[in-house]
C-alpha cells in the first residue's frame, strides 16, 4: 500500500527533479539560441522553458497534495481496486523483475534486427515471448514463429515495395 499512498508524492518528486535538470543542464547545453533573436517570445527556448516551468509547478503541487492526502486513510474504493489488481498481477517485486526482463528483451530484439535482420530476429522474438507467456505447444508455436515474419517480409517487399533490413544476410 506504500506505493499507492505515496504515488502522488513520488511522481511529484520525479517531476521536480526532472524539470530542474532540464532547466539547469539540458536546455542550456542542447537548445541553441541565436544571438540575432530580438523578441523573447520568438526565442527557440521560449516554449520549452514555459513547458518545463509548468511541469515544475505541477510537480510541486503533487508533492504538496500527495503528502497531505497520504495522512488520510485510503478510500475503500481505492483499496478494493488495489486488491483486485494484486489478484491479477504478480507480487510487486516479481512484477518489476518481469517488466525489466521484457524491456531488456525488447532491446535485445532491436539489436538482433540490426545484426540478423528483421526476419530471423522476429522468429527468435516470437519464440522467446511465446515461451515467456507459458505456452508449450511447440507444434503451433514453431510454424507461427516461422511463417509470420517470413510472410510479413514478403508482404512488405512484394506488395508494399518496402524492403526490410536483412542484417548480415544483406
Amino acid at each position: 500500500m506504500f506505493f499507492a499512498r505515496f504515488s502522488d508524492a513520488i511522481l511529484g518528486a520525479i517531476l521536480c527533479i526532472g524539470s530542474l535538470v532540464m532547466i539547469l543542464v539540458i536546455i542550456p547545453i542542447s537548445v541553441q539560441v541565436p544571438k540575432s533573436n530580438k523578441v523573447l517570445a520568438l526565442s527557440p527556448d521560449f516554449w520549452i522553458k514555459i513547458i518545463v516551468w509548468i511541469s515544475l509547478a505541477l510537480g510541486a503541487y503533487l508533492i504538496y497534495s500527495g503528502l497531505k492526502s497520504a495522512k488520510e486513510q485510503l478510500s475503500e474504493e481505492k483499496i478494493a481496486d488495489i486488491k483486485y489488481q494484486r489478484t491479477l498481477h504478480h507480487s510487486p517485486s516479481r512484477s518489476v523483475t518481469m517488466a525489466v526482463i521484457v524491456v531488456i528483451n525488447f532491446f535485445v530484439y532491436y539489436l538482433l534486427i540490426d545484426l540478423l535482420g528483421m526476419v530471423l530476429a522476429s522468429v527468435i522474438a516470437v519464440i522467446v515471448f511465446v515461451l515467456m507467456c507459458g505456452e508449450r505447444r511447440y507444434k503451433i508455436m514453431l510454424p507461427v514463429a516461422m511463417l509470420l515474419p517470413v510472410g510479413l517480409y514478403y508482404f512488405f517487399l512484394k506488395v508494399a515495395s518496402i524492403p526490410m533490413p536483412l542484417g548480415i544476410f544483406y
Binding site: 526476419v119 530471423l120 511447440y138 536483412l166 544483406y170
Partner: peptide, 23 residues
C-alpha cells in the same frame, strides 16, 4: 521437443542465410 525445436530453428536460420547470400 526442445531439441526438435532447436533443430527447426537451425534449419530456418540456414535457409535464411542461403537466401541472403544469393542476393
Amino acid at each position: 521437443s526442445n531439441t526438435k525445436f532447436m533443430s527447426t530453428v537451425a534449419t530456418g536460420a540456414a535457409a535464411l542465410a542461403v537466401m541472403g547470400s544469393v542476393s
